[in-house]
């Protein structure tokens, strides 16, 4: 409950600060915009088409790779806990696991997934 009250206080203070600053700013310099002032600046010309458009997100293979190796790290945590008990066997098992993943990296590399463009 205490945590909730604190969060609520922060929210109210932040909202109040925003409203006060915005109010003072609007009183001192009333906002005024016209159609030409709302277009994005591109050097003095106005655009004909809207900027909403779909494009190829070329970094998605990297995001997938990050996820894969992030999961690998998740497997390593329990392995690290039992490593001292199991000794050499645990080390060999992890090396096999890493080697299999390494082939995955080499395959991805060959396929050109690391090329940005």
């Amino acid at each position: 409950m205490e945590g909730g009250a604190a969060a609520l206080t922060i929210l109210v203070v932040a909202l109040g600060a925003f409203l006060i600053l915005k109010g003072v700013g609007d009183v001192l310099n009333p906002p005024r915009s016209t159609a030409p002032s709302r277009v994005p600046f591109s050097g003095g010309l106005s655009p004909d088409t809207h900027a909403w458009n779909r494009y190829h997100v070329r970094y998605y293979p990297m995001a997938l790779l990050f996820l894969a190796f992030d999961m690998e790290m998740v497997f390593m945590y329990p392995w690290a806990v039992v490593f001292v008990e199991e000794g050499l066997i645990a080390l060999i098992e992890m090396l096999m696991f890493i080697t299999i993943l390494l082939f995955g990296i080499l395959y991805t590399w060959r396929e050109g997934a690391f090329r940005w463009s």
Binding site: G43, T49, R54
Partner: peptide, 17 residues
């Protein structure tokens, strides 16, 4: 360039950029 049918954004820039 990958053969995907995607949007083209027309942008005019200058003369004061």
């Amino acid at each position: 360039r990958d053969g995907l049918q995607l949007d083209q954004l027309l942008m005019r820039v200058g003369p004061f950029l």
